[in-house]
């Protein structure tokens, strides 16, 4: 599908009225999370339109950082701001942070349309929710799947639904937790390119958790390396290659060189 053939971005009408800078605030995160005995600490800013990839070995605490920003686990210390708005005291439903969960976690009892319409339905009424969902379904090529249930979707289709569901809530910040890990290897490259397009169109501050440098290269402008609960390096992939700060960074980049 070419860009010209696509229907307009469902949120573009609203955004057009606001100037670009104020429509997309930056994310300022400084979080300390307890996980069992261990503590995970990470501080970073993410500018709108410049996605950050949090990368690190399994168990480094990457997902915990995302959960803390979204308000799904309590903060031990630190703060989270979106633009000038402090959100660390708010419950998740009032943070305006969209999350694409690992394995997508679609609502199994709702159709694709009702999954995408969920946020609008929480704000009021089933009928307006459906009207809100339709442009998103069209945009993500889901119109023909609108009546299906999540169990009847392929991995790639589920990813589209998860992203449409999160963005239809009109979030200010988008978090993606291992968005490619549930996909078969054959479709991963294609879906990665598609996801990169959608993330670019969203235009807001975006944080992506992955353990794949290929995902980071395609989806993010810069990389934050998290090892054993600590940030060990931050920069672009090129900067990391030029001066890897730890053996893990070196190994990871070497393994992805092929």
């Amino acid at each position: 599908m070419t860009d010209a053939a696509r229907p307009p971005h469902p949120a573009s009408a609203r955004r057009a009225s606001a100037d670009a800078a104020s429509a997309h605030p930056a994310l300022h995160a400084d979080v300390v999370v307890a996980r069992g005995e261990a503590r995970i600490a990470a501080a970073f800013d993410v500018a709108p339109g410049h996605p950050l990839a949090v990368i690190g070995p399994n168990g480094a605490g990457k997902s915990s950082v995302l959960a803390a920003i979204a308000g799904l686990v309590p903060l031990e210390a630190g703060r989270v701001r979106i633009g000038a708005r402090s959100i660390d005291g708010l419950p998740p439903e009032r943070r305006r942070i969209g999350v694409v969960f690992q394995d997508y976690v679609l609502f199994p009892h709702l159709t694709v349309r009702d999954n995408v319409a969920f946020a609008a339905r929480m704000r009021g009424g089933r009928a307006p929710a459906r009207t809100t969902a339709d442009p998103w379904l069209e945009r993500y090529g889901l119109t023909s799947l609108a009546g299906r249930y999540p169990a009847e979707l392929s991995g790639g289709q589920a990813q589209r639904v998860a992203l449409a569901r999160a963005l239809a809530a009109d979030p200010e910040v988008l978090l993606l937790d291992e968005p490619m890990s549930a996909l078969d290897v054959e479709v991963r490259a294609e879906m990665r390119a598609e996801l990169a397009t959608h993330v670019r169109e969203f235009g807001g501050a975006t944080v992506l958790v992955t353990h794949s440098p290929a995902d980071a290269a395609a989806l993010a402008d810069s990389v934050l390396v998290l090892e054993a609960g600590e940030v060990t390096q931050r920069g672009t992939l090129d900067e990391l290659r030029a001066a890897p700060a730890t053996p893990y960074v070196e190994r990871m980049l070497a393994a992805s060189a092929d």
């Binding site: 419950p91 439903e93 969960f101 679609l106 609502f107 199994p108 969920f118 929480m122």
Partner: peptide, 15 residues
């Protein structure tokens, strides 16, 4: 029931 569906709902604005 996957408890994460409840978390997902919360991030979508559900009380």
């Amino acid at each position: 029931a996957d408890r994460r569906t409840e978390l997902a709902a919360a991030t979508l604005g559900a009380s």
